[in-house]
Simulated assay, not measured.
Amino acid sequence: MTTTPTTVTTRTVEYPADGLTMVGHLALPAGSGRCPGVLIGPEGPGLNDFQRRRADALAELGYAALAFDINGGRWFTDPQEMLAYVNPLLASPDRMRDIGHAALDVLRAEPRTDPDRIAGIGYGTGGAILLELGRDGVDLRAIGTVNALTTGRPGEAAHIRCPVWAGVGSEDPIMPAAQRDAFTAEMQSAGVDWRLTVYGGAQHAFHHPTVAQTLLPGVGHHPQHAERAWRDVVDLLSECVPVAE
Results as ranks from 00 to 15, higher is better:
Arg153His: 11
Tyr15Arg: 04
Ala65Pro: 08
Gln213Asn: 03
Arg195Ala: 14
Leu26Phe: 00
Asn147Tyr: 08
Phe68His: 07
Pro154Val: 01
Ile118Gln: 06
Ala55Ser: 10
Val138Trp: 06
Asp172His: 04
Leu140Met: 12
His101Phe: 14
Glu227Gly: 11
Thr145Met: 00
Leu107Asn: 09
Asp139Tyr: 02
Gln188Pro: 00
Ala212Trp: 07
Ala84Val: 08
Ala119Cys: 12
Ala226Pro: 05
Ile129Gly: 10
His204Trp: 01
Glu245Lys: 13
Ile143Arg: 05
Thr210Ile: 09
Ala202Met: 02
Leu236His: 04
Gly37Val: 07
Pro223Gln: 00
Ala142Gln: 03
Glu43Gln: 13
Arg54Gly: 04
Pro88Gly: 09
Leu107Thr: 09
His208Met: 01
Gly144Lys: 02
Pro173Ser: 13
Thr214Glu: 01
Val233Leu: 14
Ala57Trp: 01
Gly144Val: 05
Arg135Ile: 10
Glu156Asn: 14
Asp139Phe: 08
Gly124Ser: 15
Leu20Glu: 12
Arg95Met: 09
Ser32Pro: 01
Ile160Leu: 14
Leu47Ser: 04
Asp78Arg: 11
Pro29Val: 10
Leu131Tyr: 09
Thr210Cys: 06
Thr21Val: 12
Pro111Met: 06
Val234Trp: 10
Met175Glu: 09
Glu171Val: 09
Leu104Glu: 11
Val168Met: 03
Ala119Ile: 05
Ile70Arg: 08
Leu216Tyr: 12
Gly201Phe: 05
Glu239Pro: 04
Phe76Met: 12
Gly126Val: 05
Ile70His: 10
Gly220Arg: 08
Val38Thr: 00
Ala59Asp: 08
Val13Gly: 12
Gln213Phe: 02
His207Phe: 13
Asn48Thr: 03
Pro217Gln: 08
Phe50Leu: 06
Leu28Tyr: 00
Gly120Lys: 04
Asp139Ile: 03
Val192Ile: 14
Arg228Phe: 03
Glu156Arg: 15
Val168Gln: 03
Gly19Gln: 00
Val8Asn: 02
Leu83Ile: 13
Ala55His: 02
Arg34His: 09
Pro173Thr: 12
Leu133Ser: 11
Ala27Gly: 10
Asp56His: 07
Leu236Asn: 06
Leu58Ile: 02
Gly46Ile: 00
Phe183Asn: 04
Thr125Gln: 15
Gly155Tyr: 12
Ala84Pro: 10
Asp172Lys: 04
Ala205Asn: 02
Ile174Asp: 12
Thr3Lys: 14
Ala91Glu: 15
Thr210Lys: 05
Gly100Tyr: 07
Ser189Val: 03
Thr125Val: 11
